[in-house]
């Protein structure tokens, strides 16, 4: 009997008004594993992230954390469990420096005043583990490259020692070199035992990084794949719905999850 997955979704449904955005979604994420969440525009990927991060709680279904049933009704609940989210727009304050952004809203204080020294020390420590090129910690974030900004956003989400990291299109706006930096970073996080749910449009990223891929189509599961053994074409056809492969879908779920 293998250990239960760190995070599991069973039969999750979400409805916006009359629109059924997610229906009976199943998903499992294990520690030390990168799971790619794939799907066309409007497939429900972002909604699923919102469900997990507590921004838009599920209407129906069960969320399990290490095999236990848990409720995620607010962003706070997700954070308390150890789920961190990096949104596509990063939500950084461009005028604040790296340290200021990392600790925004949870500043370390000493005699009532901000303890810049301690915050900078922890930032340095964290970034040295994460990134090859540590950016200037006292430069305003707006003057960093988009790859460095992505690193800062990820580092910020890691401050609370999360165990599951949700990344929404982390490489969407990056050049090749910076994409590689971010992919390296995610790789290192997996080695540290984090579970990563990676949303991406880029099959290259998925092939390079993910262990498994879960495909959504029109708000439903449309297949689970082992990225290392399945061909890119099969995954793409599952995304676009070119080949409805129902038996395979069921089988792959049984075997691989």
């Amino acid at each position: 009997m293998p250990a239960p997955p760190l995070l599991a979704l069973r039969g999750v449904c979400k409805r916006y008004g009359v629109l059924q955005v997610l229906e009976d979604i199943e998903l499992e994420v294990r520690a030390g594993q990168v799971v790619a969440l794939l799907g066309d525009n409007g497939a429900g990927k972002s909604t699923l992230v919102k469900v997990i991060s507590g921004v838009a709680p599920a209407d129906k279904g069960v969320i399990e954390w290490e095999g236990r049933n848990v409720q995620i009704r607010r962003p706070h609940d997700a954070r308390d469990l150890g789920i961190a989210t990096v949104y596509q727009d990063l939500a950084l304050c461009g005028n604040l420096d790296v340290v200021g952004n990392l600790f925004l809203g949870r500043e370390i204080r000493r005699f009532g005043f901000l303890d810049e020294v301690e915050m900078e020390r922890r930032t340095r420590e964290l970034l040295e583990h994460l990134a090859t090129g540590v950016p200037d910690l006292r430069a305003p974030v707006v003057s960093l490259s988009s790859g460095q900004r992505q690193t800062v956003a990820i580092a910020r989400s890691l401050l609370g020692d999360p165990r599951v990291l949700l990344l929404d299109e982390p490489t969407a706006s990056l050049g090749i070199r910076q994409t590689n930096e971010v992919l390296d970073l995610v790789d290192r996080l997996r080695d540290r035992g984090l579970a990563v749910l990676l949303i991406s449009h880029n099959m290259g990223d998925v092939k390079a990084l993910a262990d498994r891929a879960a495909v959504l189509r029109l708000g439903r599961n449309n297949g689970f794949f082992d990225v290392n053994t399945v061909s890119q074409e099969q995954i793409i056809s599952s995304i676009t719905g070119a080949a409805e492969n129902v038996p395979r879908r069921m089988a792959s779920r049984e075997e691989e999850w």
Partner: peptide, 9 residues
């Protein structure tokens, strides 16, 4: 300062 950098952030 953070509000000046971005209300949404």
């Amino acid at each position: 300062y953070a509000l000046g950098g971005g209300v949404e952030a």
